[in-house]
């Protein structure tokens, strides 16, 4: 371990984590999701004096599991948790925003001219407008062995788990930015790192590839699919197949890091709006959807490029579109 691993992360707890005035109220705006997009929407809504409720499983979303951020303007380097904390503080300074965390919204429905958000604990909240900013979650590989071995050698967080694979042989599945970032986390810890990608090129940014291409333990396997993950109590190997030759190979490894992208958390609106083939909510450049009063922001939508900066911009647009929509309603 290098000394940089000891760098102290200090995230002081908030004095107030949840606040809600009266759940019978009709809100001007409901925001579902508390990631970069949702928290930004809340700040803009507050400044327009819209009575707002934000409901989310957590505050931070995907930011919470981003270790190093080097492409968010204003900070040459910041960790996901630090940035989350800054976003939270900025949002929580506005008392007009009610916040409920720790709970999932299961379903959005219509009631007269209002939107109804139903939570997993059976409560419901009403709003004149709504922004869906529920983001994305890890995409599973869907191969035999995966479900059974999650937490037994299959990891979706290389930053967290890399130190557990000291001197071990591992496989990283995926050649995008997340996959190659995992290799960066693992390269000074693990023994051999097989990197399996179903495309014949790397999708990751060249600047990331540059950092690993000379690492001795980096074993690239382009144009390969994963057929199965093996192991009983823990991972012992994976079987891969070359897309070009059809040849199958079993690699002896003790850890698998799956980094093949993300799935949109859009199930909650599927009854009131049709989703794309990828499961995303289709939005226009003002974050409007086919349902008047319902807006989408960030990774859960069809917006190209899933980036923190993009999610911020989308959160702003969605909030201001909702504000304009309300003005016309009254």
């Amino acid at each position: 371990m290098g000394s940089d691993i000891l760098n102290l992360e200090l995230i002081l707890p908030e004095d107030e984590q949840e606040r809600i005035s009266n759940s019978d109220d009709i809100y001007d705006l409901l925001i579902i999701g508390g990631g970069s997009a949702g928290m930004t929407s809340a700040v803009y809504a507050a400044r327009k004096q819209m009575k707002t409720l934000l409901i989310s499983k957590d505050l931070g979303g995907q930011l919470l599991w981003t270790s190093d951020i080097e492409n968010y303007m204003g900070y040459q380097y910041i960790t996901g948790r630090e940035l989350t904390d800054k976003f939270k503080a900025q949002m929580q300074q506005f008392p007009i925003v009610d916040i409920i965390t720790g709970i999932n919204v299961e379903k959005i429905s219509r009631q007269d001219n209002l939107f109804l958000a139903l939570t997993e604990n059976g409560k419901s909240y009403r709003g004149k407008t709504i922004i869906i900013a529920t983001g994305k979650r890890y995409r599973p590989l869907n191969v035999p062995g995966e479900k059974e071995l999650v937490g037994k050698g299959i990891s979706y967080c290389a930053t967290c788990d890399a130190p557990l694979y000291k001197g071990k042989d591992v496989a990283v599945i995926g050649g995008g930015n997340s996959g190659i970032t995992s290799v960066i986390d693992l390269r000074n810890i693990s023994n051999n790192i097989y990197v399996i990608n179903n495309s014949n090129v790397w999708q990751a940014d060249p600047v990331l590839i540059e950092r690993i291409k000379d690492a001795e333990n980096f074993i690239p396997m382009l144009s390969h699919n994963v057929l199965a993950i093996h192991g009983k109590d823990s991972v012992t190997g994976i079987t891969v197949q070359s897309i070009k030759t059809g040849e199958q190979k079993t690699l002896d490894i003790q850890g698998v890091f799956i980094e093949i992208g993300l799935l949109p958390n859009s199930e909650l609106v599927k009854e009131i709006i049709s989703l794309t083939d990828l499961g995303e909510i289709m939005v226009d450049c003002g974050c409007r959807t086919a349902v008047p009063g319902l807006f989408g922001a960030g990774d859960v939508t069809t917006v190209p490029e899933k980036q923190i900066g993009v999610a911020i911009g989308e959160g702003i647009k969605a909030s201001l579109s909702a504000y304009k929509y309300l003005l016309r309603m009254t």
Binding site: I5, L64, S67, T79, G80, C157, T159, A162, P163
Partner: peptide, 9 residues
């Protein structure tokens, strides 16, 4: 835990 795990605290 590990020292690089944001979920661990």
């Amino acid at each position: 835990v590990t020292l690089t795990c944001p979920y661990c605290p």
